Amino acid sequence: MPTTTTTSPRHTAPARPIQAEAHGHARRAWAGAAALAAIGPATWGTTYVTTTELLPPDRPLLAAALRALPAGLLLLLVTRRLPRRDWWWKAAVLGMLNFGAFFPLLFYGAYHLPGGVASTISAVMPLLVAGFGIGVLKVRPTARTLLAGLVGVTGVALLVLRGDAALEPTGVLAMLLATTLMALAVVLSKRWGRPEGVSLLALTGWQLTAGGVVLAPLALAVEGLPSHFTGTNLAGYAYLGLIGTALAYALWFRGIERLPASSLSFLGLTNPITATLAGLIFLGQTLTPWQLGGLALVVAGVVLGQLASTPRKDA
């Protein structure tokens, strides 16, 4: 009579440890991508103090052109890669949203508003990304995402708005439009992705150059060049172009590839944190107890925004 062999359950490899290990790897990869992407908006938080302290006064178009075009041409020279097929117009659209239109509005706001007020307005980006995501990505925001967005906006308002803050209407409008354009750029970048075989530096260079070639002649026609550039001016432009643009945006676009749009947008709240710290360090500003509470809420908004989208362990 033939015998049958049964396999004991003890010889079956358990799935739970493997799933747990994969989940832990996914969370670590997520955290690494978020940390690198956060460098971008954290660096942008220094734009306000750099503009007011290092750049020539009242030249937002010139500042925008000199921030975008040299960095874009440098990246094109390094990568030696041009767009192909439909990426010519996609790069042009993203270049105008991220740089050609965004930069002049950003610098106008930086020239006409206190840095804290400007960064407060930009804190609405998570809510704008959530709204655009519904129409473009067909992704509905969760209640936790909306709550995190409101917490972040409230925290930034407490952090940087004071009773004596100057609110010039045109500056407020410029920053609101700039933030809206950037939110739309995040969503479109998430939808279009990156062409196969093209590096992040090349993609960044395409967009910077597209925005810069529009800004440069406009800046020369409307504002012209200063009678001379000081060493301080050149240092400010170099910092904004190399660190605050070429490097920061390459890391930001890397984050767009690896993180959900909602999660990425909350990392933008590091912008007002950096702007506040820059004011403390370079401008001798101080924080009130209300502002310290606001700083805690901003950090809470960033954390909640990441938790709302972090990969969850399977049941």
Rank of each mutant, 00 (worst) to 15 (best):
L150Q: 02
H112I: 06
L76I: 12
M125P: 03
Y111C: 01
L167Q: 09
V151S: 03
G171R: 01
A118T: 02
G95R: 04
R84L: 09
P169D: 08
L106S: 12
E168H: 12
G116P: 08
T154R: 01
L128R: 00
A68D: 03
L128W: 00
R80C: 05
F102D: 07
R144W: 14
V172F: 08
A143Q: 09
V129D: 00
Y108A: 05
Y111L: 05
L128M: 13
L137Q: 11
P126K: 10
G116V: 06
G149T: 00
M96G: 07
F99K: 04
R85Q: 14
A165D: 12
R80I: 04
G131K: 06
L82V: 13
A118F: 03
F102E: 04
A166H: 13
K90Y: 10
A148N: 03
W88A: 10
R85Y: 09
V156I: 12
G95I: 04
R80E: 04
L69C: 04
V93W: 09
L159Q: 10
A65K: 02
L159N: 06
A166R: 14
F103R: 05
V172Q: 05
L159Y: 10
R80W: 07
M125V: 07
R144H: 13
G72R: 01
G163L: 13
S119F: 03
G109V: 03
T142H: 10
L167E: 11
V78L: 15
T79P: 03
Y111E: 12
A166I: 13
P104H: 08
A123W: 00
V93A: 14
L127R: 00
V139S: 05
P70E: 07
F102H: 10
S122H: 09
T120L: 15
I121E: 01
L76W: 05
P141Y: 00
R84A: 11
M96I: 14
K138H: 15
L127G: 01
T145D: 02
L158C: 11
V151A: 06
G72T: 13
K90R: 15
T145N: 09
A118H: 03
A110L: 12
D164R: 09
A92G: 14
D86P: 10
W87M: 08
